[in-house]
Structures are given as structure tokens and as C-alpha cells.
Design a protein around this nucleic acid. Structure first.
Length: 460
RNA sequence: GGCGGCAUAGCCAAGUGGUAAGGCAGAGGACUGCAAAUCCUUUAUCCCCAGUUCGAGUCUGGGUGCCGCCUCCA
């Protein structure tokens, strides 16, 4: 079955065709590890995970490369200000390396919690400085870059005819719209740093043909993508905010060197909003996954919430919506777990519908509606079918929450209640039920006896 | 100001020009001593105006509102 992706480059859905049959190379724009990832960042990696899983569902062998940027990402996209890693390390009184380690470990933990498959190759910018220097040298040799003494090496955008092809920005417009340019020595306001000279006290620095320095942002992605995936790659993903600067610059520097089209399909994930507005630290509507877990949410409830909206739509995050997602996920799992196992062939129509949904530019929300159908219809084979769907969706339908041990005193209360019920002393029984509820025990009286679920309030 | 995107029920949302998927919440019912959980049923004419068309949520133009990048952020 053919797969279609919306390609940011053409602004159209295109039929996907990989460079090599049966294999796909994907470069995922990874995090700059100077702080915790927030749920907006994480939405973006849920998207790249879905992309990978959809391709795998279609029997592609996927090579997924994700970078960890631990140097060179300056505070401003105009290549001004301090390196984010250095700035953050000063704030936290740790070395940039300690910091990178800490935040990338945390990032990896979050990916795991969200059931995001680990990319086959995860590469750090600081491990690839030589590759970047080699690229900058080539750009200098080819005349695409120039040096500003006492500052660094810059890419000259006007030398690259296609500059702006991804975002639709025109160089003239960029020039006209530019703010007061701090660096007036650049030949064009959109010129960007490939390499920055490091003053002696700058912590992160490496020797280079131009003296001690550190790489600019952008170059690490081109260097590592080309190193691991070759000069032409199938798919490159990232957030929409990267379209106008980061990815535009990546294209320019990569294609300037190779003279070939670099990326065939550019896929960009839309932003997550919070309460219909942007999420920012200053507005105090900034959430990390850890925050959600602290509030007692299942991390996959957040995944479900993200899956429920198309990756190219802005998703409005609210706790009401997250509650809904959590309930939906629980019901889905319960429903699936109750389904009878069967060796019968699953409903071919439903499989077909699911498959064509995911292949239509990752229409996961529609695909989820087919998952509900499979779980609700309870036909023979539905359980197996739903499990297959879950290989793409990654909601862990088989997950069973481990019930906590019930402390002795609560067990006593339960016993007393059983006794009261046997004696039809409903007043006492209900009173005990309230007491148990206050301690986090939910009781359910069924035909087969009373069951309970224990979640101590303090545990949340 | 420049460039790009969005606007569907209380909430999260899908939707290839032919009369609106799914989930959550709500309502009604079954079950229950009463609940809880579960199951069943049920809830919209798609921001506004004007066009194109036999027919538009879906196309065109104009409004209004929101979001993103250009300035920290996926």
C-alpha cells in the first residue's frame, strides 16, 4: 500500500518513495540539552516515533538518527548571545558536560516513559566536532563561507541560490524585515555562523584551522546526518519552528557542499499549545512530563492525547483533555484485556481501514477510531488485530497496573465491611466504604465478591 | 511590518465537493441494597459575510479571532 506524506518542501502530500527499496533513513532533529524537555518538545518526538512505527508497519527497515545538541546552540537565531549550554552551566554551576549528561539522561528517560522507540543512532554534537570542522573547511574552499576576524566563519546565504525554498522566505524580505542587526559585519542579515571563535575563558572550545572555537548551531545536524545517512536522505523531521532558520540553513550548507538535493521529504510537527496559547516559562503554563507524573497521570495518557490530534495540527493541551485521555486509555486497555483470544483471521476490512489511515500522512486520530472499533466489536480475531494496531500506536494495551499491597489496617476495614454487608447493615457498610475511599481504596461489589483498587493519595 | 499556519458540539478532535469519525464530559437506561466499575442509547450543520457549484465544513474573495517564525522555545 502506498504511503503519503505531507512534504514541507512542496507543501503537498506526496507518495513516499525511499532512495533504497525497503529501507528508510530518517534524521530526527533532537534536543539541545540545556534544560528539561517540556511536553511540547515531547510531542514532537512522539510524532517522529509514530513516523518510524508506521514505516515499520509497512515493512521498511528504518534507520533513525537523532542528534543530541550539546554545544553551539546560541541564545539567538541571529547567532548572537551566549551558547545555551554555557549559559545554563553557569546558571547551574556545573560544567557543560555534566549538564549535557544530566539533561540528556533525563530526556532518554522521558522517551522511554512515553514508549518512544529509541532511535538506532543517537549522536552527540561534541563527539563530531571534527566532522563539522571538515564541513566548514569545504564550505570555505567552495567559496560559500567567509571569515570575520575576531568573530568566526559565516555562511553567505546569497551564494546559495535556493536559500529560502523551504520556508518561502525571500532574501530581500529577510533583509528588509531584519531587526537592527547587531553584527553589521555580516554580508547579509541572514548569514549564519558555522564556527565561532572562542575567547580564552570560554569553556567549550576546540582547536581548528581558525584557532580555538566552537561550532555554530545548524552545522552539527548537517555533519551528523551526512555522516550516518549519506549525502541524500529520505526523511528529516523536526518542529515547525525549525523551518525558517534551522532547516533552511541545514539545507543551504549541506547542498552547497554536495551539490545534490539533500532531503527528499521534510516533515514538521506542529506545536502544542496550553490553554489556547503558547507555552512559556514566563507564563507559568510550562509543563514537563515529570509534572504530569507527579499529578498522577499515566505517561501514556499524554501519548494518547497527542495521538488523538494530527501531527500537523496545533494541539491544545488542557488538563480536562488529559483527564479525558487518561480515562479513554484505561477503558481501551480494560476493553482489550477482556477480549477473548482467537486464532481466527481478523477483520480484513478493519485492518485495511487502519492501514490506509496511517499511510495517509499519519492519520493517527482516524486510526485510533478503528482501534476503538476493534476493541468494542469483540469479534473473533479483534484482540490480535488491536494488538497489531498497538505496534504502531504504542499505547501498551497489555499494560496492567500493579495493585499496591493493602496495609493491615485497611484489610481489617475491608473485612468489617464484608461482615456488615453480609448482615445487610448498609449504613455501616457505606460508612466503611467512605473511610476506605478517603485512604485511597476504591471498592467494587460484583457478583463474584468485592474487589478493590488501592492508590494511596500521598503516592501521587 | 515580512513569511507561514489554524478556526468543526462543554472539552480534545478526524474529515478525499454530495448532506458531519472517534474519545472525554453530560443526559437516559441496564446492572447494584445504594454506589463504583462495566455495557447500551443519546447530544453539532462546521467563526462571520459574499461568491463558484445541481450541491461546500471541504473551493474563491473579504472580514474577525488565534498560533508560529523573524526575538528563548519542538
Amino acid at each position: 500500500m502506498e504511503i503519503k506524506f505531507y512534504n514541507s518542501l512542496s507543501r503537498k502530500k506526496e507518495v513516499f518513495k525511499s532512495i533504497y527499496p525497503g529501507m528508510v533513513g530518517i534524521y530526527v532533529c533532537g534536543p539541545t540539552v540545556y534544560d528539561y524537555a517540556h511536553i511540547g518538545n515531547l510531542r514532537s518526538y512522539i510524532f517522529s516515533d509514530l513516523l518510524r512505527r508506521v514505516l515499520e508497519f509497512n515493512n521498511y527497515k528504518v534507520t533513525q538518527v537523532m542528534n543530541i545538541t550539546d554545544v553551539g546552540h546560541l541564545e539567538s537565531d541571529a547567532d548572537e548571545g551566549e551558547d545555551k549550554m554555557v549559559e545554563s552551566s553557569r546558571r547551574h554551576k556545573k560544567t557543560p558536560w555534566e549538564l549535557a549528561r544530566y539533561y540528556s539522561d533525563d530526556f532518554m528517560l522521558r522517551l522511554e516513559q512515553l514508549n518512544i522507540k529509541k532511535p538506532g543512532i543517537i549522536c552527540r554534537a561534541t563527539d563530531h566536532i571534527e566532522d563539522m570542522i571538515a564541513m566548514v573547511e569545504k564550505l570555505m574552499d567552495k567559496g560559500y563561507a567567509y571569515r570575520i576576524e575576531g568573530d568566526g566563519i559565516y555562511f553567505e546565504v546569497e551564494k546559495f541560490a535556493d536559500y529560502g525554498k523551504l520556508s518561502g522566505n525571500k532574501l530581500d524580505a529577510l533583509k528588509a524585515g531584519a531587526r537592527v542587526d547587531v553584527n553589521e559585519r555580516k554580508r547579509h542579515p541572514a548569514d549564519f555562523a558555522l564556527w565561532k571563535d572562542a575567547p580564552p575563558q570560554h569553556i567549550m572550545q576546540w582547536p581548528s584551522p581558525w584557532g580555538p572555537g566552537y561550532p555554530g548551531w545548524h552545522i552539527e545536524c548537517s555533519a551528523m546526518a551526512i555522516k550516518y545517512l549519506g549525502e541524500q536522505i529520505d526523511i528529516h523531521t523536526g518542529g515547525v519552528d525549525h523551518v525558517p532558520i534551522h532547516h533552511e540553513n541545514e539545507i543551504a550548507q549541506s547542498e552547497a557542499i554536495t551539490g545534490k538535493r539533500w532531503v527528499n521529504y521534510w516533515l514538521h510537527g506542529e506545536f502544542l499549545q496550553v490553554d489556547s496559547g503558547k507555552m512559556s516559562k514566563s507564563l507559568e503554563n510550562f509543563h514537563t512530563l515529570a509534572d504530569l507524573l507527579d499529578k498522577g497521570y499515566d505517561p501514556l495518557a499524554f501519548r494518547y492525547l497527542c495521538l488523538n490530534a494530527h501531527y500537523r495540527s496545533q494541539l491544545n493541551f488542557t488538563f480536562e483533555a488529559l483527564d479525558g485521555a487518561q480515562t479513554a486509555l484505561q477503558r481501551l486497555r480494560q476493553g482489550w484485556q477482556k477480549l477473548p483470544a482467537s486464532k481466527k483471521k481478523p477483520d480484513a476490512k478493519l485492518l485495511q481501514a487502519f492501514h490506509s489511515a496511517i499511510n495517509d500522512d499519519l492519520n493517527i486520530p482516524l486510526a485510533i477510531s478503528y482501534l476503538w472499533e476493534a476493541v468494542r466489536d469483540g469479534k473473533p480475531g479483534s484482540k490480535e488485530l488491536a494488538a497489531r494496531f498497538d505496534q504502531v500506536l504504542g499505547l501498551k494495551l497489555d499494560y496492567v497496573e500493579k495493585s499496591k499491597e493493602l496495609p493491615e489496617d485497611l484489610q481489617q476495614l475491608l473485612k468489617q465491611r464484608e461482615q456488615a454487608r453480609a448482615e445487610k447493615d448498609w449504613a455501616l457498610s457505606d460508612k466503611l466504604r467512605d473511610q476506605l475511599a478517603a485512604r485511597g481504596v476504591i471498592v467494587r461489589d460484583t457478583k463474584d465478591g468485592t474487589t478493590w483498587e488501592y492508590n494511596p493519595p500521598s503516592d501521587k
